[in-house]
């Protein structure tokens, strides 16, 4: 795993799920991990919704100071350089689409200077409406790069339908993921699958879903 892991993707593709799971895995190996909530375009379902889970696992959560409050304005007020140098690993959960990636663009020079230690991973989900075809997903990937002024280094296939996902549905998405990997020349880092089911694809990584419907709590 690289020192800096930037997670990007379409709205609702599962960026936060991937970001939190990545941070948890690193923390379980006794690494000093920080997670940055850089989603300043949508105030719902983001990393800063899970402060207790992160605290319990000794992960430092960095979020816009007023996240979730009346002053939840689209502004970031933290020193990314300090965060990165203070931790062994940093996971950055970026906002959806190119709109969300603009906030990352501010840190492009910093990331560029640490290029060798950085992965920028593009999360894809073929069950999301506006990125259903490889062509649509690839186009959005380039739009994100343009906004972020950083190039991706890999693809994460998180094709799923939330709690209703079956192993077959994930396996059926493999072709979609491979196509995107081929078209972009980027490696398919892994295919994610929900804890409790298993898939016949490699490489694969188990993820736990933390975003729960309110009637199941």
């Amino acid at each position: 795993m690289n020192k800096i892991n930037i997670i990007t993707g379409h709205y609702g593709s599962g960026k936060t799920t991937i970001a939190i799971n990545t941070a948890l895995r690193l923390a379980q190996n006794n690494k000093k991990v920080s997670i940055v909530d850089l989603d300043i375009v949508n105030p719902y379902f983001r990393t800063s919704d899970f402060p207790n889970l992160l605290k319990k696992n000794k992960i430092e959560m960095i979020a816009p100071m007023y996240a979730g409050s009346n002053l939840d304005i689209p502004a970031v007020n933290f020193d990314m350089e300090r965060i990165i140098s203070d931790s062994s690993y940093t996971v950055i959960d970026v906002g959806g689409d190119d709109a969300g990636a603009y906030a990352l663009g501010r840190y492009a020079p910093l990331i560029e200077s640490m290029k060798e230690q950085t992965d920028m991973l593009y999360v894809i989900n073929c069950y999301r409406y506006l990125t259903k075809t490889p062509a649509e997903a690839v186009q959005l990937m380039y739009e994100i790069e343009q906004a972020a002024r950083i190039k991706h280094t890999g693809i994460i296939n998180n094709s799923s339908l939330g709690y209703e996902t079956s192993a077959e549905e994930i396996e059926e998405s493999h072709e979609f993921a491979v196509k995107i990997s081929e078209e972009t020349g980027l490696p398919l880092v892994f295919t994610a699958y929900r804890k409790g089911i298993d898939i016949n694809i490699s490489p694969k990584t188990e993820v736990e879903l933390f975003v729960k419907p309110l009637w199941e709590i």
């Binding site: 609702g12 719902y44 379902f45 339908l161 939330g162 209703e164 419907p213 309110l214």
Partner: peptide, 10 residues
């Protein structure tokens, strides 16, 4: 409401 608007379901 905002809950339905923001949540994802198949």
């Amino acid at each position: 409401d905002g809950l339905l608007g923001q949540m994802m379901e198949p």
